[in-house]
């Protein structure tokens, strides 16, 4: 009973800390930096969610932006299109006050992640029977099909997209709270999954699919589960994007976004949760820092793709590989530097 209490207290403390940080950030940090920070958090969540599929289960999906888009569109559709219908009957769904905003955001998150999960199930069930490069191309194709489909739904604006989505969570004071709360929740869930029995089957599929099949692991089921969980997380971060950036159109969920998320996972090290978070922050913040360059978007893409090629040549498992970065690793790094201990020969 005691551990439950301590966990609950810890969670409450984290949530309170996040909320306080969020309010402080809103009032003390320039809007531009604040938005970059939010974007970093969303990118990191996406990277962690794709890491679940590509890193931990060892599949290769490069169409993750599709699920992100589904989440964003469904979440926005709730707030803009469906909520007004329900709000006529249920007054607590009115936005503008804190409880109403929170209730709406939670409903939007639930609907968006559910829709992304269902899409993930529909996409994953047939395609995960394939392996390797075929799977990669198929997911890329599905991502594009999702985007074109959204483009052709007139109710969500078609090619124009949706604009003027109301910023829930009381005018954005709590944006950082939601984004980083989701990031922490997703990371913890991923970590716990990796340590559970179910997560072990995921790792087994990554290490050797045929062997784990022979050991009685239902590999297709495991892969589909990982895919669905990953797309659910992506959908949730899409909902947050839609509500904190107040405008979405299909062109911000294109193939280049999918490739960016994949780059984050590949560069950081497939299978490393902390690596994915760091890469999400670094690869989102770096182009903002390079904004003073002319044509910076092109330079950014060229630099990233060259980095990808060089990484494949030197260290195909990514910077961190399967290792995690924690407090302990800094201690070890310090000791190694102090004692001058060289890494053992490869």
């Amino acid at each position: 009973m005691l551990w439950l209490l301590s966990r609950a207290l810890g969670a409450a403390a984290v949530l309170f800390g996040l909320g306080a940080m969020s309010v402080w950030l809103t009032h003390n940090v320039e809007t531009y930096y604040y938005l970059v920070l939010i974007q970093c958090g969303i990118a990191a969540t996406l990277a962690v969610s794709l890491n679940l599929i590509n890193g931990i289960t060892g599949q290769f999906s490069i169409g993750h932006a599709g699920f992100y888009a589904v989440g964003a569109y469904v979440g926005a559709a709730w707030t803009m299109l469906w909520r007004p219908i329900f709000a006529k009957e249920l007054p607590w769904l009115e936005i503008g006050s804190l409880p109403g905003d929170v209730a709406n955001l939670i409903i939007a998150l639930a609907l968006g992640s559910l829709a992304a999960a269902i899409t993930g199930l529909i996409v994953g069930t047939p395609s995960l029977r394939l392996r390797g490069d075929y799977l990669a191309i198929l997911t890329l194709g599905f991502g594009e099909v999702i985007r074109v489909t959204l483009l052709n739904i007139d109710a969500v604006g078609g090619a124009r997209g949706l604009a003027g989505i109301p910023t829930l969570a009381s005018t954005g004071d709590l944006a950082a709270f939601w984004v980083f709360g989701l990031l922490i929740a997703v990371s913890l869930l991923t970590r716990n999954l990796m340590q559970s029995t179910r997560g072990l089957t995921w790792l087994a599929v990554r290490e050797d699919e045929v062997a784990s099949d022979a050991m009685g692991v239902d590999t297709t089921r495991v892969k589909v589960t990982a895919f669905v969980v990953g797309s659910t997380f992506a959908g949730a971060s899409g909902v947050l994007y839609a509500h904190f950036f107040t405008g979405i159109s299909q062109d911000i969920f294109g193939m280049d976004v999918s490739i960016m998320i994949t780059t984050m996972v590949v560069l950081a090290g497939t299978g490393s949760v902390t690596g994915a978070i760091i890469a999400g922050f670094a690869l989102t913040a770096m182009p903002e820092a390079l904004r003073f360059l002319k044509d910076f978007k092109e330079y950014r893409m060229v630099v990233f793709s060259l980095a990808l090629i060089i990484m494949m040549l030197t260290r195909p498992q990514g910077i961190l590989g399967h290792a995690e970065v924690g407090f302990g690793s800094f201690v070890r790094l310090y000791q190694r530097l102090r004692l001058g201990v060289r890494r053992s020969a490869r």
């Binding site: 290769f60 490069i62 390797g132 490069d133 990669a136 490739i259 994949t262 590949v266 044509d295 978007k297 092109e298 330079y299 893409m301 060229v302 990233f304 793709s305 060259l306 990808l308 090629i309 494949m312 040549l313 195909p316």
Partner: peptide
């Protein structure tokens, strides 16, 4: 190197050509 590494490299080359071309 696995076939996936080769595929990632190929994607990298493709993006170098595209965005290099834009430059």
């Amino acid at each position: 190197t696995s076939r996936l590494n080769a595929l990632i490299t190929a994607i990298g080359v493709s993006f170098v050509l595209e965005y290099g071309g834009l430059l």
